[in-house]
Computed example of a mutant assay.
Amino acid sequence: MLTHYDLMLPLLRMMQNENKIYSLSDAYSELLKVLDCSEEEKNATMDDGRNIIFYRLQWAKTYLKKAGIIDYPRKAHFQLSKVGESLDLSNLKSLTPKYLSQFESFNDFRKLNQKTDREMKLAEQKIAVNNEELTPPEIISDQSKLLKDDLKSELLDLIKTKSPQFFEKLVVDLLVTMGYGGSHQDAAQAIGKTNDGGIDGVISEDRLGLDKIYIQAKRWENTVGRPEIQQFKGALADQVAKKGVFITTSGFSKEAIESAKKSGIVLIDGDKLTSLMIEFGLGVQIERSFHIYKIDQDRFDEDNF
């Protein structure tokens, strides 16, 4: 059965020949015409009825996006990027993790997924981790983490395309969902109003408003450094504030983290932000769920009858 890596090269060759915008369904239909596989493989489905090639094509598309080879010009559509248009595919037999590792954005994606060299080697050799190495629950756990990390990456990319005002509203929704700020209306009135020396908003720590949390929210690409933390720290001191949260879509430098620790400032970077969104169900929805059952030994204890 073709893997998502097997699908990448024929997909890219097809896209270079046509040079147009595709929906996933269109790409799937056209790709089936050129794939070197049997009708049985083309029609194979998963337990839930989804076509396996269609499902793996989704992952092929995701990996190519992470490598910067394709772009998403609009919702649910994709096309070749400038990088993808310039690739010479003529002498390639397949696209492997090693080939994709030449692209910095793909390496960043690999780091996010925390793949080990051994795992990448297994993927490149098309060897699945089998039951002799991992138990079925461990395999499910590993794949669940991979799906979650990919979702976090997509969430962050999407957030970065939105306006600063949208990001502030997103911060409000997250904090309220986590139990801070009372109501959405109360929290919305607090965020984006102060703009006082590095403070973007003030929100109640509890529904009674007994304590306040001062917030800095930055939709940034660049790493937040020590100067930004120092500015926020100074703003907190001016307000005689005890608690502050600095939220960003990027990350924090080592110096920024050390400075925040000394001041009791909580830092939430892009990775933590998207983790919290998934944990509290904000901006995401459940596609599928799995239940692992075991024997209820108490039910078969004759002393209980």
Rank of each mutant, 00 (worst) to 15 (best):
D88V: 00
L89W: 15
Y63K: 12
E287H: 12
D47P: 06
E279H: 05
D211Y: 10
A27V: 03
E132I: 04
Q285K: 12
Q125P: 10
E40A: 13
F166K: 01
Y214V: 02
T45E: 04
S259F: 02
D48W: 10
Q102T: 10
K152L: 03
N43W: 03
V245M: 08
S105Q: 09
Y22L: 08
K93S: 14
E255Q: 06
D301Q: 12
Q165H: 12
K218R: 09
I69H: 00
I203S: 09
M15P: 02
R13H: 12
Y180R: 05
L11A: 02
E228H: 11
D26A: 12
E138V: 07
L282W: 03
S25P: 14
A217C: 03
K66S: 08
Y293M: 02
D71G: 05
V245E: 10
I257D: 14
N222E: 15
N51R: 11
Y293C: 01
L156Y: 15
V202K: 13
S90W: 15
I295R: 14
V284F: 13
V34L: 04
D173N: 14
Q239C: 08
L24C: 10
L57P: 02
I278C: 00
A187T: 01
D47G: 03
R219W: 07
K169R: 08
R288I: 03
Q165L: 12
K254A: 11
I140D: 10
L210M: 12
